[in-house]
Design a protein around this nucleic acid. Structure first.
Lengths: 97, 97
DNA sequence: TTGTATAGTCAGTTTTACCTGACTTATTGT
DNA sequence: ACAATAAGTCAGGTAAAACTGACTATACAA
C-alpha cells in the first residue's frame, strides 16, 4: 500500500494516469460525460476500459456519478469540485506540451 | 502507437506517470539528483526502476543528464527548461491534493 | 592489490494494466 | 411482443510495468 506521502502530488497524478483517463478527463471539461458517449468519442477504447476508468475517476473523487431522471433516463458523470480544481492545472499542461 | 493528440496534456501526464517518477521529480525540485542518491532517498525503490525512470524522464525531455567531472566524478540529472516549466503545475497539484 | 563507491545492465519472474467477446438488466420505441 | 439503446459485468487471455538477484565497468582510497 502506498500512502507514504513524501510526495503529495502523487495521488492526483495517479488519478489521471493510464491509457484512457487523460482523454476522458479532457472531454469532461466540456460538460457531463456518459458511458456510451465516451465509447463513441474515444477512438480505440472499449467498454471495459471506459468502465474501469470512470470507476477510478469517481473513486478518486474527480468525477461524480448521477442518474438523470429525464426522458430516456441515463447516467452522467460530472467533474466534482476537486475535479474542477484540476482544470487550470490541465490547461497549463496543455500549454507546456 | 499513440499520437492521436486530441488531448495535448496526455504526453506530459504519461511522462510523470508510474510508480516512481512523481517522487523522483519531486526530489529533483530541490536540486540535481543522482542514481544512488535516489536509491537511498526513495523507500522501496530498486536499481532497475530508478534507471528506467531516469531514462524515461530524460527521453521525455524533463531531465538533462550530465557527467560532473569533479573529484569523485559522478553523473547528475537536472530539470531541463521544460522540466522547470512543470514546477508550478506540480506545486498546484500539491495544493489540491 | 584489495576493497569501496558510483552507475549502471541483463535475464527471468511476478504483478498490474489492458483487451476481447459473451452475457445481463432496465428502459424505451414500433 | 420484439427489437434497440444505455450501461454495464464477467471470465479468460495478452501485453506492459515492476521486481529480484547476479553481474559489469570505472574510479578512487588504503
Amino acid at each position: 500500500m502506498n500512502s507514504d506521502n513524501s510526495c503529495p502530488a502523487e495521488g492526483l497524478l495517479k488519478a489521471l494516469s493510464g491509457k484512457w483517463k487523460p482523454q476522458i478527463f479532457r472531454i469532461a471539461l466540456d460538460g457531463p460525460v456518459r458511458f456510451n458517449m465516451l465509447l463513441r468519442l474515444v477512438p480505440g477504447s472499449n467498454k471495459q476500459s471506459i468502465a474501469v476508468a470512470l470507476k477510478e475517476l469517481e473513486e478518486q473523487g474527480l468525477f461524480e456519478k448521477r442518474v438523470v431522471t429525464v426522458k430516456p433516463l441515463h447516467i452522467e458523470y460530472n467533474l466534482s469540485s476537486k475535479g474542477q480544481s484540476l482544470i487550470p492545472v490541465f490547461r497549463q499542461l496543455e500549454n507546456i506540451a
